[in-house]
Write a protein that binds this DNA or RNA. Structure first.
Length: 343
DNA sequence: GCAATTTGACCTCG
DNA sequence: CGAGGTCAAATTGC
């Protein structure tokens, strides 16, 4: 509470940094591929700085997800989901007070015969499949996973994976519960590496965030953000598809939610403040990345609240996009505090 | 032989 | 009562 000034200062700093990142981004759009990569590199520095600032002000962070160690069931391939706190995520209450966080992930191109599980990217956690069910009106079955360490460490995290009907390369991943285990395995921890933000508005527009951390020897920089996001992958790509048009951005670095907002504040499909789509009106997915501006956005986004399993439906509707600028959350601990916006 | 996955049965909630 | 979610025996793979 007495940190208000500090917070404001931080916000100011973040604004400046993101402006720099934004400038860089704009500049890069005029460069050729070669130089663009460099520009992106510079941009990533801004992102790093933003990350640092965010992590500094972030006070309530908890565990970070973890590591690469692709395990058995969960997701053999690559990367992505793990940290619910970033990316296109939806938090919804399903049955009896259980909160679920859903994100869309870009998986591998379906290869005939290959089971879904083999196509879903790895999220850094070890999962063990315990069931599969065909869902009504869904072409593809839904797979149920639980943390591999449920037994040893009583980790209650659950995960559901279901391939999208429309785009078979997209997987809808739903997380439930939180990891209480200490999956600190290797170095490559991953967070959501791939997130999809469908923006089905007037034109079939999609923004795909693709993190590539597969070959990233982690490094040094490991900033702690929200409860579950960690950082590591230095690169990812963003591609947007719009009626045949496709553009991509590489090496933007830091998947950390915060840097995201920073790197893309105010550009193209991203409006300043958060990572949001522009002109969205009524699509079904939210597309907001933690804003570097919202003081507590990054740090406090603890979904963590297992204390008493949140019971409300929390989700971010597209409509909130316009308001993304001042996404300074009212409730420090909840990044997406838009109760009924999303229906 | 152990651990993970598969899959049909069973359970729970709306 | 049906759909979604979980259990657990059987199966498969290392």
């Amino acid at each position: 509470m007495e940190d208000e000034n500090k917070t404001m200062g931080m916000n100011r700093l973040l604004t400046i940094l993101s402006e720099g990142a934004d400038e860089m981004r704009r500049l890069s759009s005029h460069l050729n591929e070669q130089l663009r990569a460099d520009a992106m590199n510079v941009q990533s520095r801004f992102s790093q700085a933003i990350d640092i600032v965010n992590s500094m002000e972030a006070t309530g962070m908890h565990q970070m997800p973890s590591q690469g160690h692709t395990t058995a069931s969960g997701s053999p391939g690559g990367s992505f989901s793990g940290s619910p706190s970033e990316g296109s995520e939806r938090i919804v209450k399903k049955r009896k007070g259980t909160v679920k966080r859903t994100i869309n992930v870009q998986g591998t191109v379906p290869d005939d015969g290959q089971p879904d599980t083999a196509l879903v990217p790895d999220d850094g956690f070890s999962w063990r499949k315990y069931g599969q069910k065909s869902i009504l009106n869904a072409k593809h079955p839904r797979s149920y996973y639980r943390c591999t360490f449920q037994k040893n460490q009583n980790c209650e995290a659950l995960k559901q994976v279901q391939r999208s009907d429309e785009d078979p390369t997209i997987f809808v991943v739903t997380y439930q519960g939180e990891h209480t285990c200490t999956q600190h395995v290797g170095k490559t921890q991953s967070l959501e590496h791939q997130l999809l933000i469908p923006m089905q508005n007037e034109s079939d527009e999609h923004v795909m965030i693709n993190f590539n951390n597969s070959n990233n020897p982690i490094g040094t920089h490991e900033s702690v953000h929200d409860d579950q996001s960690k950082i590591v992958s230095p690169s990812f790509s963003i591609s947007s598809t719009q009626a045949g048009l496709r553009s991509e951005i590489y090496n933007v670095f830091s998947p950390s939610s915060t840097s995201f907002g920073g790197a893309f504040s105010s550009g193209g499909a991203f409006s300043s403040g958060g990572f949001v789509s522009s002109g969205a009106s009524d699509s079904n997915y939210l597309s907001v990345f933690q804003s570097p501006f919202g003081a507590d956005f990054g740090g406090g986004s603890s979904f963590h609240g297992s204390e008493s399993e949140l019971n409300d439906v929390i989700s971010v509707p597209h409509s909130s996009i316009s308001a993304a600028n001042d996404f300074t959350v009212e409730q420090p601990n909840f990044p997406f505090d838009s109760p009924d916006l999303f229906k």
